[in-house]
Design a binder for these strands. Structure first.
Lengths: 141, 141
DNA sequence: TCGCAAGTGAGAATGGTTCTCATCTTACAT
DNA sequence: ATGTAAGATGAGAACCATTCTCACTTGCGA
C-alpha cells in the first residue's frame, strides 16, 4: 500500500502525497512531467497545488521512490522507481521512450570511473534515435 | 581562422560571432555557460548582448561547431566540437569534468538501438562520481 | 482530543532562455 | 567605393518551468 511506502521513507501520509504516488503508479505513460501530474489530478477532481506536486516529487526522489530524467529538449520527467536500474532510448520524432539495461555498459562505466580515480555515484545514459514505428512515421509524414 | 569556420557553415562573419568563437577556443574551462561567455566578453571590453550570445551558441550548435551539455543540477554548458566524440564524467562535489571515449560502450549503444528498431542519431552519457582529488576534497571539508 | 511540527495552496519570485523590434552590419552588385 | 537588402544585434520584455513565501490546515504522538 502507498501509505506504507510513505511511512517507510519518513514522510507523513497526506492526501496529496497519496494521490500523486497513486497517479504515478497508474499513469499510462511511465515518464511523466510535474505539469501533467498536476493537470491530471485537477481533472480527476483533486485540487492539488502545483507547488505541492513539485515538493512531493522532490521528496519522493530524495527518498528513492522515483527517478528524475531530463531528456534533451524536453521537460523534466519522473518515473516510479520499480524494478532494476535501466537506461532509456528516446525517439526524437514521436517521443516514445523505451528502457534497457546492458551489463556490458554498466561494467564499463564502473571501470572508466575507476580509471579516472572517481567513485561512481550515478550516471545518465540516454540514446536518441528514430524509431521505425508506423505511428511514429505517421506523425512527421 | 575563425572567419573561415563561420563562412563554411553559412553564417555571416560578424564581430560578436568571432569574439564568441574566439572565447570558446581560448577558454580555460572547456565547458562553459552562456552567462560566463557573456560576462567574460563584457570584462574584456566587448559589449555583446546576452541574447546575441544565446543566438550565436544556438547557431554554432546547429552548424555542428559546438556541442551542448546539460549536466544534472547545473546550467547548460557549451563545448567546442574539436577532436573525436567523447562522453563525460563529472565530479558531483567540485564540478570537475573529464572526457572519455569508450569503444565498447559506443558499439553496444548501436546494437541496443538496433535491437529496438531505432536508428541511432545521438546519445548522452554522463557519469557522476566523486573525484578523489585533493582540491576537490578540500572544498567540502 | 490537543498541540504543534509538518504539510498545503495561491500566488509571487526566480532564473535561465527566448522573443520583439528598432537600429546597425555584412555581403554583394554596381 | 557605395547602395542596398537580408541578416544580425542589443535592450529589455516576455516566457516558462520551478521554487519560495506565508497564512492556513492537517497528521499524528502524547
Amino acid at each position: 500500500m502507498e501509505s506504507e511506502e510513505l511511512r517507510n521513507v519518513g514522510l507523513k501520509v497526506t492526501t496529496p502525497r497519496l494521490k500523486i504516488l497513486g497517479l504515478l503508479e497508474n499513469a499510462k505513460a511511465k515518464h511523466i512531467t510535474a505539469e501533467t501530474i498536476y493537470r491530471q489530478l485537477g481533472e480527476s477532481g483533486e485540487a492539488i497545488g502545483l507547488a505541492t506536486v513539485y515538493r512531493a516529487l522532490a521528496q519522493f526522489e530524495a527518498a528513492g521512490l522515483i527517478t528524475r530524467h531530463q531528456f534533451e529538449g524536453g521537460q523534466t520527467v519522473f518515473e516510479l522507481e520499480r524494478g532494476p536500474h535501466h537506461d532509456h532510448i528516446v525517439c526524437v520524432r514521436c517521443g516514445r521512450v523505451e528502457e534497457f539495461y546492458d551489463k556490458v555498459i554498466e561494467d564499463r562505466q564502473r571501470e572508466i570511473a575507476e580509471n579516472f580515480g572517481f567513485t561512481l555515484k550515478d550516471h545518465a545514459l540516454t540514446l536518441y534515435g528514430e524509431c521505425n514505428d508506423e505511428n511514429c512515421l505517421g506523425r512527421t509524414g
